[in-house]
């Protein structure tokens, strides 16, 4: 069975025809959002992470048909001056880079919930994302830097830019 869904992807309303069992991952990639990636197919690595109304979702486990009217954000749809992206770039928080968009989105979710996370809280939140290159020290530094800057610039809790 196919159906039409109308999610908003990175601020743009899309009208998409999907099959019952189409994965959100595949549908997003088909419309060019290749920052969303398959790494495991079982929700265990985080490379396919997207934000739906600010909450992280493993798009490799999500049926696209359930995302009618959803507000979906992918890493490549974040603003040019996104503070988390800037923090990752400045910290050198990337090696092969394949998993990093997932980490960026998880960091946004974390900082929206908890603007001043401890190192342990950061680790708890990112435990489900795997960076096989082992860029964890730089990722930790990037998130701490982003949190510090938000507190200095007085961005209110819940805002993502």
């Amino acid at each position: 069975m196919s159906a039409t869904i109308e999610p908003t992807v990175n601020g743009v309303r899309r009208r998409l025809t999907v099959e019952d069992d189409d994965l959100l991952l595949d549908v997003l990639r088909q419309i060019g959002r290749t920052s969303v990636r398959e790494g495991c197919g079982v929700g265990a690595c985080g490379a396919c992470t997207v934000l739906v109304s600010g909450r992280s979702v493993s798009s490799c486990l999500a049926r696209a048909i359930r995302y009618d009217q959803a507000e979906i954000t992918t890493a490549d749809g974040l603003p040019e001056d996104d503070d988390v992206i800037e923090a990752f770039v400045e910290a050198g928080a990337m090696q092969c880079g394949y998993c990093i968009p997932g980490f960026v989105l998880m960091s946004h979710e974390l900082l929206a919930e908890n603007p001043q996370p401890s190192r342990e809280e950061i680790a708890d939140h990112l435990e489900g994302n795997i960076c096989r290159c082992g860029t964890y020290p730089e990722i930790l530094a990037a998130i701490e830097s982003a949190a510090r800057r938000r507190s200095q610039s007085g961005v209110p809790i819940g805002e993502t830019t």
Binding site: V36, D76, L78, A93, G97, I100
Partner: peptide
């Protein structure tokens, strides 16, 4: 390619 990697814009 650091920025492209973080933004997810690098094409594998």
């Amino acid at each position: 390619d650091g920025r492209a990697k973080v933004r997810g814009e690098l094409l594998y």
